[in-house]
Amino acid sequence: MLSVEGLRSKYGRIEVLHGVDLEVKSGEIVSVIGANGAGKTTLLRCLSGVQPASGGSLMFRGDDISKLPAHRRVGLGLAQSPEGRQIFTNLSVEENLRLGAYLFADARVDKDMADAFAMFPVLKEKRNLSAGGLSGGQQQMLAIARALMARPTCVLLDEPSMGLAPILVDQILEVVKSLKSLDVTVLLVEQNAFAALSIADRGYVMETGRITMSGPAAELIADPRIREAYLGI
């Protein structure tokens, strides 16, 4: 589905990704874990096209997307829920969702919106309120629902658990897990390593702009080095 080879990216002159290789197969949930500053968010930004890559190749469903601008990648079925949620705070909840389906103007938009409301009933209650008034957890739900409105085959989720109460983290992760049944492939980036690996099929560990370990999520959870460095056990 998504294959990344030797991806490099810079902020100004400083290179932060030094050749990242990564593969996401259709139907998988893949988690990238790593400490703050490891380059996880930059990786996702490169994938969605918000941040330019300075080297390497990006293939999505057989197409080279490395030269496509961000708004074109969405149309191919690669949607992102960006870091810090980035919902449109001055727009209503419903308008946020409609923007998620910005590229479409057909009857399915309303159906998808009904599905989103079924997934997150609290959003339905607040559909006409401004999204800035939502709580952190609700904003995260909205960010995920908005990404799903783009009819993605693959979603990129950046730190969906960030700043949320533990009970909300579980709730959000349940939703991420359930995306599998909707045939949506997930690439998840998380600092919350245990939570991210517990719902994933495979995982990658990122350190200072490189992938240092990878493997099935269950193996990574069991790995003593990871247990020590990221799980605090």
């Binding site: 969605s48 918000v50 961000a70 969405v74 149309g75 949607a79 705070t89 910005y102 783009a150």
Partner: peptide, 10 residues
């Protein structure tokens, strides 16, 4: 509201 988010929705 957010240029980045606008780009990510297309």
């Amino acid at each position: 509201d957010s240029e980045i988010a606008a780009r990510t929705v297309g």
